[in-house]
Amino acid sequence: MTLRADLHLTLGEFTLDLAFSAPEGEVLAVVGQNGAGKSTVLAAIAGLIPLQRGEIVLDGHLLERVATGIRLPPQARRVGVLFQGLALFEHLSALDNVAYGLRARGLDKRSARARAHTWLERFGIDELAQRRPRELSGGQAQRVALARALICEPQALLLDEPLVALDAQTRLEVREVLRETLGAFAGVSLLVTHELDDAVALADHLLVLDAGKLAQEGSPEQVIRAPATAHLRAMLSARRTGSTPDPGT
């Protein structure tokens, strides 16, 4: 199984011009400063933003091709998304948040909730099933969001800044959960982050974006050895000195 993406679109003054492929069983991280286009990449693959040129193919199935007018809606793409900020429904319990995708696909409530319980158990939080998102810690909410993204058995898992806004201890805990989850996931995993440490810890291969274009790609070791952008060099310098770089640097 492979994801092939040839993405070309313009939003206001920003233009995304990127082509890449991602095989199953490998975690691909897209890194770059704020505004580089990382989240736009995920939104395009998920079907939330239409391409103006190019195509997206997942496991040999065409999700979108501008030249022929083919464009599957988001719900028809076998793609799970962990949104930045999680986007959990505040009026629903953790259980019903996880079951939501199955219910949207027509599964009855009882069956959807039974499968949701199974996923909450996998993440060790089934005892929190009846809590609302506001009653969950940051790490617990991340686990709920992961379960919701995986319950519909996607072929590709897209994670948008999954560790943002977490305190240091929770960040380490959730990073380990992500490492285990991505290691067990049989499909294509695509992670976007502006934090190099997260990319190095979780990814097998990096794509470095700069102003909507590919500036560098390679293994984490290759990128660290010869960073191609000023933003990466600033992050590596901050890593050595223990300071915090400006994400927009």
Rank of each mutant, 00 (worst) to 15 (best):
Q140T: 10
G138S: 08
D96V: 01
A67E: 15
E90M: 05
R71D: 13
L72V: 09
Y100S: 11
T68I: 13
W119K: 00
V144T: 05
I125W: 00
V79N: 05
A67K: 14
A114N: 08
L136Y: 06
F83I: 05
A94P: 01
V79F: 10
D108A: 13
R115G: 04
F123G: 05
R131D: 02
E121A: 15
R105F: 10
L92T: 02
R78F: 04
R115W: 05
A112Q: 09
R122P: 02
I70N: 06
H117N: 08
L120R: 01
Q84V: 02
K109T: 14
A141P: 09
V144L: 07
P133L: 12
R105L: 11
R78E: 15
A149H: 01
G85D: 13
R110K: 14
Q130Y: 14
D59M: 07
L146K: 03
A145K: 02
G80C: 12
N97T: 03
R132A: 13
E64T: 14
S137N: 10
G124W: 05
R113G: 08
E90W: 08
E121D: 15
H61Y: 09
Q75G: 02
R65C: 12
L88Y: 05
L86E: 00
L102S: 12
H117M: 12
A129C: 08
Q75W: 13
A147Q: 04
Q84G: 02
R110N: 07
L86Q: 04
A147W: 01
Q142R: 15
A104Q: 14
T68L: 11
H61M: 10
A114H: 12
A112L: 10
E64I: 07
D59N: 15
H91F: 06
H117L: 12
V98Q: 03
R110Y: 04
R115Y: 03
